[in-house]
């Protein structure tokens, strides 16, 4: 199996790569491990001291839970991997406090974290609005978790598709009509001839829709190469998400092999 990086977004939060020489089952394994098994930090418990805002405690707790928090995987441990589920342990639980008085909007940046390396990825996310005289005071506990128990612990969005192979064989009679119907711009005119725009053809989700534009155009999908897109929500970089996913796959395979040996 080979990996070839195709593109990185400007803000480095999204990468697209080619997975070569593998099967759909493996591409899906990688996708599911990224979504469900790579741990990230998220707020799990919230203790309210005071809340006179218009939003109910549960709603604010829910909003806090959905905030992506920057995650340091070298220090923090999953509760289930720590003694006594890690109650009160610094490497498992992190306290964040929030104190705000109206009038005004309460933002994610108003959360005071005990650990400066763990903070909301998007500080401008609105939490609640307060009118004059209203106030909000709470203490939140963030823990590591996995996407399989709640999507707030999912590090990002991962998806893939078969790699489209766009080819032009011979003469295209009505190139103008093809260009006109090609909304995703997977074709371009080069020296008066129709040519394939490689980048656009790879990123386009509808490539196969264009296969009947002209008899000279052939568009097929390879089932051993995948265009894989990984979008990070900001807790971890796409690179560390992939590395962590590989670690998880390795761990699970080792466990599986050991169990098979035991039962044999």
């Amino acid at each position: 199996m080979e990996i070839e990086l195709l593109s990185t977004s400007k803000d480095k939060s999204t990468i697209r790569f080619l997975l070569k020489g593998t099967v759909p089952a493996f591409a899906n394994l990688l996708r599911r491990v990224i979504l469900e098994e790579v741990p990230v930090m998220a707020i799990e418990d919230v203790d309210f001291v005071k809340n006179s805002s218009v939003l109910y405690d549960e709603m604010i707790a829910h909003r806090l839970g959905l905030l992506p928090l920057t995650t340091d995987l070298t220090f923090y441990k999953l509760p289930e991997k720590s003694e006594n589920m890690g109650k009160g342990r610094a490497e498992v639980e992190l306290k964040l406090t929030l104190k705000a008085k109206g009038p005004g909007m309460v933002y994610a940046k108003d959360l005071q974290s005990k650990d400066p390396s763990v903070r909301p990825v998007f500080p401008d996310t609105p939490i609640a609005n307060l009118l004059k005289g209203q106030s909000l005071e709470l203490e939140a506990t963030a823990v590591l978790g996995r996407g399989r128990s709640h999507m707030k612990w999912s590090p990002g969005h991962a998806y893939y598709k078969y790699k489209p192979e766009v080819e032009i064989r011979g003469e295209v009679k009505n190139a103008g009509a093809v260009i006109e119907k090609d909304h995703n711009k997977i074709f371009e005119m080069k020296n008066g001839k129709l040519a394939v725009a490689k980048e656009a053809a790879l990123s386009c989700d509808l490539s196969l829709e264009y296969s009947e534009l002209d008899p000279a155009i052939s568009i097929t999908a390879r089932d051993d190469e995948f265009v894989f897109t990984l979008e990070s929500w900001g807790q971890l970089s796409p690179k560390s998400i992939l590395e962590e996913a590989c670690k998880v796959i390795e761990e699970q395979c080792t466990e599986y092999a050991a169990l098979m040996k035991e039962s044999a």
Binding site: L55, R63, L66, L67, P68, A108, V121, F122, P123, D124, T125, P126, A128, N129, M151, S154, H157, E231, W233, G234
Partner: peptide
């Protein structure tokens, strides 16, 4: 009511973009 922190379907954080 108030803008959701994340997209309902895909989970992308979008709440911080509302003011802009």
């Amino acid at each position: 009511m108030i803008i959701p922190v994340r997209c309902f379907s895909c989970g992308k954080p979008i709440g911080h973009l509302w003011a802009q």
